[in-house]
Nucleic acid binder design. Structure first.
Length: 806
DNA sequence: ACCGCCGGGTGCC
DNA sequence: ACCGCCGGGTGCC
């Protein structure tokens, strides 16, 4: 598989080593307004379109104001190195900052080990020679701090004292440890309009959030020195007071009530330190899930759900609201495709990113869209703040607009590199940064000596199911056929071009484990060749739907995030529309599919037709005479037994296949169960009604909820249920866990028992094995880096082999 | 003097 | 720039 660097065009600075340093000069100072201090960091930026010299290299201060240019002879040497990304060149002005015409600049060259010789050689050809970094002194800071240290002839070092993965991990664990020591234990009552009483830890969070919003403090790492403000990391100074973020990161564990606390914050500290001035009117207006739950019924709060594009082109509609709810996809699509998103035309009082850690790819449209929302109060809610690395943290910090970290270079030079290279004080910096803007409590954190949350026990049982003879026969024949086809792909080496077909085989096997009716009409063709366009179009749409509905949690291979506006290529690979457009634009005129390197053309991309119920065509077939299946029998048996023991116990019946859920309606009715249903295709109003109804403790309220695995976000609260029946395993164990957490969360009064139905000797059993592997991986590896697209593919190929016993 | 030396003009890339 | 560099003016001691 040809490797294609998909993720970012900047060199991976994580692997960078210091090649050496060089003293040069900055000229033309009198033509520019940017000023610097002695020892201040400067940025070197190529200016290939300079009319006087195509080699020009600009020198900018931390604020981005140009200070001058690198002297032309040196620029000539740097241009090639910078343009070919052979090294990252960073500068510090050691002295002479007040000079009128030229000033010195101490440059450090960073890059990958394998490029070192090329860089040294290129410099040599222009008559420059790097001074080698001092041993054990990975960061050349001390070189310039001590003044004009000349070139050093000490022994060269290659890598600095890099921390091992484990060391780094344990350091990160400590990162949050003493967060609570601070002044984060004051409590504050929510405004009257907050309908739900706050728990002590939530009152603490509210007090902290309000104090952050009303704070007059300088942002972290800034000091006032006589009549200017000074940044102690970059040594940058300015007259104008740097704006602090009136917000931060609420990083409590899942289930501690981040959303509730934020609702309380909005209502309590709405504007100018005062609560939202709501009229005391009973309203029949419909409110979105959680927001409705927690806002007192006697108050009238305008909540608007913005689904984007066509719904409101007029920003004034948005600005009239008290609260606007929207999704990342709406945010990204509006912003990226239309470029005139109404969301970006409003000056917001505050912006809250819920599950903010999902914003982690700096190139993703979502990140840019979120960053460009205008508001002084900016919050990130996340249960997993430093999920993978310091790198991911940057997106959050950058969203908060903390000077100077909005620019990746300054984040990297002042925090990320010192931390990963183990420079003295690096971790301390990160820690004090996190401490000043983050509040994090875990489920085991104690408030006044008591644990925050005392959740009831949660047990997961696996209930094996044996197929009937008839079911087994169908299963085996489909398996035999599929296995033959897949082996064929392996021997041809066309696994990736037939990825959708393979998923199709696996999907049908998984469906057959549930109910023979499920895989009607999903037969796939194994070749898309020689088809007339219309037919091809249909095939592609069907394949895309297959991928999207197979519950495999497909990610876009370009941005490695969940699919935004999925489109399928002619080679049957699915990507985010903006991502693949970008690839085509960048590689034109000969763009290739990032997955399989087949030819790519914009006019050959097929979009996913608007969300219709994917199995609607199957609906008719379901109306045929109803038949049961081994799994349905197992479920019904369990449900009836449960009802006998405890008639009021409520359960969730979860499946990835909404058709399967439909098939269960019949026996539930026949056995006299009151049930409700929640799946992704339902309109908001129906969803809310289904939840309300199920959560109700009234006699006669439903005791069973048919729930599609991915319905609803993490916020979905189904605590009325104390039993969960997971009808079919998911690829991703985290998706299952998240589903279980919908009832095993704050507010759950009973022990929770989860039953997973798994068909013996089937693809489902193999899926369990893969799940366990994924769990181990997630628990053990504090991933130093995200797997590359190639690694993702290889893992998937291995999984395919394991799944179909190859 | 096809040099040296002087002193004025001048100045990023 | 209280520099370097350029190019014109100039030319024994």
């Amino acid at each position: 598989i040809p490797f294609l660097p998909l993720r970012t065009s900047t060199p991976d600075t994580d692997m960078a080593i210091l090649y050496g340093t060089l003293r040069g000069s900055v000229v033309g100072l009198r033509y520019y307004t940017g000023i610097v201090n002695n020892n201040e960091m400067v940025a070197l930026q190529r200016e290939p379109n300079n009319p006087y010299d195509k080699n020009a290299v600009k020198v900018n201060n931390v604020n981005g104001d140009q200070v001058g240019h690198i002297k032309k002879e040196l620029a000539a040497a740097l241009a090639g190195i910078m343009d070919n990304k052979l090294a990252v060149v960073e500068g510090v002005v050691p002295y002479g900052a007040k000079n009128a015409f030229t000033m010195p600049v101490q440059m450090s060259f960073w890059g990958r080990e394998e490029n070192k010789e090329i860089v040294l050689d290129q410099l040599k050809r222009h008559g420059f020679k790097l001074a080698l970094p001092l041993k054990g002194n990975s960061l050349p800071v001390s070189l310039w701090i001590s003044g004009r240290a000349g070139p050093s002839y000490s022994a060269p070092v290659h890598a600095a004292v890099q921390l091992t993965t484990n060391q780094l991990k344990s350091e990160f664990d400590k990162l949050f440890e003493d967060l609570k020591e601070d002044d984060k234990t004051c409590e504050m009552e929510g405004a009257e309009a907050v309908g739900t009483p706050l728990l002590p830890h939530q009152k603490q969070a509210l007090a902290w959030m309000v104090s952050r919003e009303n704070s007059n403090d300088l942002p972290p790492f800034w000091e006032k020195r006589s009549n200017f403000y000074y940044n102690i990391l970059t040594n940058f100074a300015e007259k104008q007071r740097p704006e602090n973020v009136l917000g931060g990161i609420l990083a409590d564990d899942m289930g501690l009530g981040k959303t509730l606390t934020t609702i309380a914050l909005i209502l309590t500290n709405f504007q100018d330190g005062k609560p939202l001035p709501v009229e005391k009117i009973t309203s029949d207006k419909f409110y979105e899930d959680q927001f409705e739950q927690h806002i007192h019924q006697d108050f009238h709060v305008n909540i608007y759900v913005h689904y984007g594009s066509d719904r409101s082109k007029d920003p004034s509609v948005l600005s009239e609201q008290d609260i606007v709810l929207t999704t990342y996809n709406t945010l990204a699509t509006d912003y990226g495709i239309r470029g005139d998103s109404p969301l970006h035309k409003v000056k917001w009082l505050r912006i809250v990113l819920d599950e903010g850690h999902t914003i982690r790819n700096p190139n993703a449209q979502q990140t840019k869209a979120a960053l460009n929302l205008e508001a002084h109060r900016r919050w990130v809610l996340t249960g997993t703040p430093i999920q993978n690395s310091v790198k991911d943290l940057w997106s959050l910090i950058s969203f908060l607009k903390l000077k100077p970290f909005t620019d990746r270079e300054w984040w990297h030079r002042t925090i990320q590199r010192p931390v990963t290279m183990g420079a003295p004080g690096g971790l301390g910096r990160l820690q004090s940064l996190i401490r000043s803007i983050t509040l994090r409590r875990t489920k085991t954190t104690k408030v006044k000596g008591k644990p925050i949350l005392e959740l009831p026990e949660r047990r997961v049982l696996i209930q094996y199911v044996t197929l009937t003879e008839e079911e087994r026969q169908i299963y085996q024949s489909v398996k035999k056929e599929g296995k033959a086809a897949i082996s064929g792909f392996f021997s041809e080496g066309t696994v990736l071009t037939h990825y959708a077909d393979i998923l199709g085989v696996l999907l049908r096997l998984r469906q057959l484990c549930c109910h023979p009716r499920l895989c009607i009409n999903t037969s796939s063709s194994f070749s898309a060749d020689n088809k007339i366009p219309e037919e091809l179009h249909e095939t592609l749409v069907r394949k895309m739907k297959l991928v999207l509905s197979s519950g495999s949690d497909e990610e876009c291979a370009v941005c490695l995030e969940s699919l935004t506006l999925p489109v399928i290529t002619q080679c049957a690979h699915v990507f985010c529309k903006p991502c693949i457009f970008e690839v085509i634009r960048r590689e034109q005129p000969n763009a290739k599919c990032p997955f399989c390197r087949n030819e790519l053309r914009v006019e050959h991309l097929v979009e996913c037709p608007l969300e219709e119920e994917i199995d609607s065509s199957n609906r008719k077939k379901l109306d045929q005479e109803w038949i049961s299946s081994s799994k349905i029998n197992a479920l019904m048996h369990a449900l009836i037994e449960l009802r006998r023991d405890n008639p009021t116990a409520k359960c969730l019946v979860v499946s990835q296949f909404t058709t399967f859920l439909s098939l269960m309606e019949n026996p539930l009715k026949e056995s006299g169960f009151a049930f409700t249903r929640l799946d992704g295709s339902m309109a908001q109003k129906k969803r809310v009604e289904a939840i309300r109804c199920f959560q109700s403790s009234q006699a006669g309220s439903p005791t069973v909820m048919l729930l599609s695995l991915k319905a609803g976000g993490v916020g979905l609260n189904l605590t009325a249920a104390s039993r969960v029946f997971l009808m079919d395993p998911a690829w991703n164990p985290a998706a299952e866990d998240q589903c279980f957490d919908r009832c095993h969360r704050l507010g759950q009064k009973h022990n929770v028992v989860i039953t997973k139905f798994i068909v013996k000797n089937s693809v489902e059993e193999n899926m369990l094995k893969i799940q366990n592997k994924k769990r181990e991986l997630a628990a053990g590896a504090f991933a130093t880096k995200k797997p590359s697209a190639t690694e993702v593919k290889q893992t998937k190929i291995n999984e395919i082999k394991a799944l179909i016993d190859l």
